[in-house]
Design a protein around this nucleic acid. Structure first.
Lengths: 194, 194
DNA sequence: GTCTATACGAAGATAGAC
DNA sequence: GTCTATCTTCGTATAGAC
């Protein structure tokens, strides 16, 4: 719907949509291989076989492209663990999966760090909304869990949600710097005490 | 000792040492005012009244300069709360202080995010060592606290230390993106459950 | 030891031709 | 839709004044 306007009905779009997806996929490849700093528009363009200027026909800026890569993979990630019961077990499963895709975790961490900087509005908007949504979802699920187990909590569930997300993100950074860190195990520790 | 070699004993150094500190101080000002991306070597040089090339007489690279700013302020920060009893109260006090210096928190967060990227070795070394030291200190203090209260913990204290640091860092990021986040309050929540 | 001047290559962004 | 060419700014590097 949104992507249908002007021009023909099908022909022009199939290629454009495919091209856009190709750019997103190859960008993650380049990021994983050469790092974020190595993923210049020219390097990404070279990997696809187009000029760096052509990339900007699909994405408004390099930042917008990187954020879009993350947005897509993050949605996949959330969908993958959607069936798992319990908030912390779901986070731990996510952590386990992420261990296999360090390039993506690096992209997440780097963009998150950059998002607090004025001038990186795309990343800022993405993460602000992501955290807002995630906090609300987690808090509501925690409420359900407590109700189901017949208990009730004295703690502010929004604060608990913030804490869980913070632990997840913070542990991921420590893990990237030192692979001995056990993200899932530490999240299970948090689950035990909560 | 280290900084004494060649030339006179005092004269030449006074200026250099002072200049170096001036650069560190002004760099934080520029970062706080214009953001990290706005803190180019040229912008920092302009703020001091020297050329950008002169900065590299004191610091090997822009990254090394930024890391040194953070290293110095971080040491101040740790010293400031050193007298406070209990691990979490000390972290909460740090958080309370940081609320007043958002530019420094932004610098910390941005450099931390960048440190996981290959090519940012200065930041990587700083944070890797920082986390290692901090985890060891926290774990040892937690052990003391438990011993003093006559209890003993079933949990791995290194994991608890990781968790506390992760919560602190993660909450700071969420706070930078949404000032409604209550870092100290959420840390106290963590203290209550541990 | 301290600093200016200057140049280099790479980056993101942009304009306009095809 | 894609390109080439160009603009500006960046970090870095070097030569040399004082």
């Amino acid at each position: 719907m949104i992507s249908e306007g002007g021009g023909g009905v099908r022909g022009p779009y199939a290629k454009g949509v495919q091209r856009r997806q190709e750019i997103l996929d190859r960008t993650l490849d380049v990021v994983a291989t050469r790092g974020i700093d190595g993923a210049s528009l020219r390097a990404i363009g070279d990997a696809i076989g187009i000029s760096h200027a052509a990339l900007r026909h699909y994405f408004a800026s390099r930042e917008a492209l990187l954020v879009e890569v993350l947005r897509q993979r993050d949605a996949d990630s959330i969908a993958r663990v959607a069936g798992i019961d319990g908030v912390l077990p779901r986070m731990a499963a996510s952590a386990d999966h992420n261990v296999g895709v360090p390039g993506l975790v690096t992209l997440y961490t780097t963009l998150l760090g950059a998002s607090v900087e004025p001038g990186n509005e795309d990343a800022r908007v993405f993460f602000t909304e992501r955290f807002e949504t995630l906090r609300a979802d987690l808090a509501s699920q925690l409420r359900d869990q407590l109700a189901a187990s017949g208990r009730h909590s004295a703690a502010d569930l929004d604060q608990v949600a913030s804490l869980i997300i913070a632990a997840f993100d913070g542990l991921q950074v420590q893990w990237l710097l030192d692979r001995r860190i056990d993200i899932a195990g530490t999240l299970r520790l948090l689950e035990r005490v909560l």
